[in-house]
Design a protein around this nucleic acid. Structure first.
Lengths: 230, 230
DNA sequence: CGCTAGCTTGAGCCTACTCAACACGGGTGG
DNA sequence: CCACCCGTGTTGAGTAGGCTCAAGCTAGCG
C-alpha cells in the first residue's frame, strides 16, 4: 500500500502477507510489541498493562465475542493472521470478551498510548493506523452483509468465499482452504445453529458448489453458486 | 468529548447549516466543508471532487446501502446528525451507495486529503479523527449484535433502544422518540420484511413494552422487555 | 476400551417470509 | 370540491426455512 516506507506496526518477521518493505532498522513501535501464545478458548488480555492496547494476530484465530444472558455466544469479529484489533469498550448490557479460537494462537500486543505518541510525530504511522482501522470497518461491514442474507445456505456460502479469500492470501490455489475453525464457531459467527451449519454444508456439497475432504478441507468448485444472490 | 478544547470537525456553525464563508479566519477545516442538502432517496456524492471524502450528517438521516442482485436493499449503516462517515470502497460483487433516507437531509463534506494534511500538523485533529472512526466501528458492532438476535421482535426492541439513545441526545425525555425513518427502512436495516416489522411493533405495543402515538411517535415503557435476552 | 468433542442426520414445531387485501393520508388533476 | 393515485402501514392465510430435541457417528485420547 504505502510502498516505499517500511511498515512499522507490521513487522515482516511476524506478518505473513506483508508487502515487501526492507531496510527497516530500529523500529520503535515493534520493540514495544509483546508477543503471547494462547490456548484455545483463553481470554486475550494485555500482558503488560490493563490500559487500552492494540493487537495483531500472528498465528491462529482470534474471536471478539459477546456473550448474552441466555448463554448464547456471538463472534462479532473473526481475526486471522495479519488482522489488527483493539480493546473494545464493553457494551453496557452484555458481556464482551476477546478469546483465542484455535489452539496455539499467537498475538502481538502494542501499547496504545505510546503508539499514539509515535503517530503524533510520524504522519506515516498515523496514516497506517487509519488504514488498519479502515480494514476493521471493512470486515465488520462484510459481516453485516453476510448476516443480512436471507437463508442460512447463502450465509454459509458467502462466509466460505470470504474465508477462502482471507485464508489463501499469496497461496497457489485460491479455491482450496483449510477451514481453521469448528462448525460451532461458524455457528456463533453467523448467528445460526450448529445443525443448520452442517446441513448447509452438506447441501452445498450435494449441489456441487463445494467439495469436502474430511471436515475442514474445503475446495470451492462453483463460486457463482456460493454468492448466488436472492 | 475532548474536554476544554473545541471540536474542530464538529463545529456548531455547521450544525446551524452555515455555508462556509471564504476568507474566514476561523477553523481551517471548517472552511473546507461543503454543505449540501439532499432530497429523500438521493445519492450522496462529493460535490467538489470524485476523490475520497469525509462526511458528517448535519440534519436528517443518511443510509449506507448495499443493493443485491435480487433488488433487495440492505442499509448497512444508519447515520444520524453528528455521525461521520466515509466514502467506502465498493464491494466487488454488490453495488454500494450512500443515500439520504429522509427528505431534506443536510450533509457536510470534507476533503479527505486536506483533512489528513491538517491532522499531520495537529495531533488533536488526528485524535479526533481516531475517535470518529472508533464511533463508526462501534455502530457497526452494535448492528452486528442486533442482526445476531434470534427473533425479529428482539431485533426491533434492541433497535428501538439504540435509536432512542441516539435520537434523544441532550433531550429531556429519553423514553420519547420521533422515529425518523419508515418501516420499510427499518426492514432494510434489520434485514427483515416490512410486515414483520409492523407485526413486531404491534406485539411490543400489546405487550406493554412501548406506546405508539401515530406511527412515528414512540414512547418506551418497559426497557427490560425490549432488551430481553434469550 | 470407554470417554469426550466434533460433526451429521432426522422429526416436529415455531418463526418469518410471501402473497394478498385493506386502511389511511397527502398529493394532484379533473 | 371530489376522485383518484401513490406511498405508507397494518393484518390475515399459507408456506418454507431454521431451531430444538434427540439420536448416532467418527476420531482422538487417556
Amino acid at each position: 500500500m504505502r510502498g516505499h516506507k517500511a511498515s512499522i506496526l507490521a513487522d515482516d518477521n511476524l506478518r505473513r502477507y506483508t508487502p515487501p518493505s526492507p531496510g527497516n532498522s530500529g523500529s520503535t513501535l515493534e520493540a514495544l510489541a509483546a508477543v503471547t501464545r494462547y490456548r484455545r478458548g483463553q481470554e486475550i488480555r494485555s500482558p503488560r498493562s490493563p490500559a487500552e492496547s492494540w493487537y495483531r494476530v500472528v498465528i491462529g484465530v482470534v474471536g471478539r465475542c459477546a456473550v448474552r444472558a441466555g448463554g448464547r455466544r456471538q463472534i462479532v469479529d473473526l481475526l486471522l493472521p495479519g488482522d489488527f484489533f483493539f480493546d473494545s469498550m464493553p457494551p453496557v448490557d452484555q458481556h464482551c470478551s476477546v478469546e483465542a479460537v484455535v489452539e496455539g494462537t499467537v498475538v502481538a500486543c502494542y501499547s496504545r498510548e505510546r503508539a499514539e505518541r509515535l503517530a503524533a510525530f510520524d504522519p506515516d504511522v498515523a496514516h497506517e493506523i487509519r488504514d488498519m482501522t479502515a480494514a476493521i470497518t471493512w470486515r465488520l461491514e462484510e459481516q453485516i452483509l453476510i448476516l443480512g442474507r436471507t437463508t442460512a445456505t447463502k450465509k454459509i456460502g458467502c462466509f466460505l468465499l470470504k474465508m477462502a479469500e482471507r485464508c489463501s492470501k499469496s497461496e497457489t490455489d485460491k479455491n482450496r482452504m483449510a477451514l481453521p475453525i469448528s462448525r460451532y464457531d461458524i455457528a456463533d459467527h453467523l448467528a445460526i445453529s450448529v445443525e443448520t451449519v452442517s446441513r448447509s454444508l452438506t447441501e452445498l456439497k450435494q449441489r456441487g458448489a463445494i467439495a469436502l475432504a474430511g471436515t475442514r478441507q474445503i475446495r470451492i468448485v462453483d463460486r457463482a453458486a456460493l454468492d448466488d444472490e436472492d
